[in-house]
Write a protein that binds this DNA or RNA. Structure first.
Lengths: 146, 146
DNA sequence: GCTTGACCTTGTAGCGACTATAACCTTCAT
DNA sequence: ATGAAGGTTATAGTCGCTACAAGGTCAAGC
C-alpha cells in the first residue's frame, strides 16, 4: 500500500526486493552481473522478478557484507552453503581469516590513533610558522649519527 | 654503489627518489599527474630529476598517507605548510577530523570483531548441513511475533 | 484515452589510490 | 656492441559500488 505497484505475495520487482533487503536496485543488478545472484526471471516486459528464495539469498549476501567479507568470500560461502555435505571447516576458515584481518586492521588503526593524538596534543601555536604538527610531518628523519 | 646509476649528490632519478622515500616510481608519477607534486625538471633524455627539496615534500606526503589522510587532505596540508602565516587551527582541524574518523572505524571494526568471534565459537559441526555459521548467516530475521 | 510520475531497462563512466601491462627509449658495465 | 636495469608514455584494471543518460512500462487520476 506504500506504492502503486501491486506486489504479488510470492514475487517482487527489483525495487521491492531492494527495499526488503536494504540494498539498492543498482547493487542487485551489479550482484547479478558479477555472478553472486543468478539471472532473475523476467516479466513479459522484461522486468526482473524475484522469489522469496532469492530474497533469502540476497539477505545472506548482505549479512556477509556487513561482516566485512569481500564478494569473493561471499561467493565461496554461498557455494558452501549450497552444498550441505561440504566440510564446515572451510566455512570456519573463511570466518577465521576475516577475524584475523579485522584484528590486524584494528591494531593498525589504534597505532594511527595514538600517533594522531600525539600530534594533536603537541600543538598550541597560532600560525603554521610555529605549528608543531607541520613540523612533525616535515621532520627529516635524523640521519644516522656518526 | 648499490646500482650502476650514478647519483649526483643533489639530484635523483625517479627510482632513487622512490627508494629513498619508500614509494614506487609509478606512485610518484601519479602524484605528479594529480598535482601533489609539481612537474619535475627533466634531463636531456627526458628523465625526471629531483632535488632534496622535492624529496622532503614527498616524505611529507608519505607521512601524511601513513596517518591515513586522503590525498585531498594532504593537498590541504601542503598548501598550509607552504604558507607560514596561515592559522595553525586549520591544521589542527584536519588532524582532529582524521582522529575522529579513525576512532569511528575502530569502533565499527570492534563490533565486527565481536560478531565474528561469536560466529566462530558457535560452530563445532562437521558438515555445512549442521554448520551454525551458515545457519546464522541464513537466518531470516524473526518476523515480528504477534 | 491520455498524461503524469514512479518505476523498470541497458550501457557507460566515475570514485580513490594506486597497480599492471605494453611498447618503447636511455644509461651503464662488460 | 650487447644486455640488463633503469627510464618514458598511455591505457586499462582493481573493489564495490554509484551516478548518469536515454529510453520503455505500469498504475492511477482526469
Amino acid at each position: 500500500m506504500k506504492h502503486h505497484t501491486t506486489a504479488a505475495r510470492d514475487h517482487f520487482t527489483i525495487g521491492q526486493l531492494a527495499t526488503l533487503t536494504g540494498t539498492k536496485p543498482v547493487t542487485i543488478r551489479y550482484y547479478e552481473r558479477t555472478g553472486l545472484l543468478s539471472p532473475a526471471n523476467r516479466s513479459a516486459a522484461g522486468y526482473r522478478l524475484y522469489t522469496p528464495n532469492e530474497r533469502d539469498r540476497l539477505d545472506f549476501i548482505r549479512r556477509c557484507r556487513r561482516l566485512g567479507l569481500g564478494l569473493d568470500e561471499v561467493r565461496a560461502l554461498l557455494r558452501l552453503s549450497d552444498d550441505r555435505a561440504a566440510p564446515c571447516r572451510q566455512v570456519d576458515a573463511i570466518i577465521h581469516r576475516q577475524l584475523e584481518q579485522v584484528r590486524e586492521r584494528i591494531r593498525d588503526l589504534q597505532s594511527l590513533e595514538r600517533e594522531l593524538e600525539r600530534l594533536e596534543l603537541g600543538c598550541q601555536a597560532e600560525t603554521v610558522e610555529a605549528c608543531k604538527i607541520i613540523e612533525a610531518l616535515s621532520r627529516r628523519d635524523e640521519p644516522t649519527p656518526v
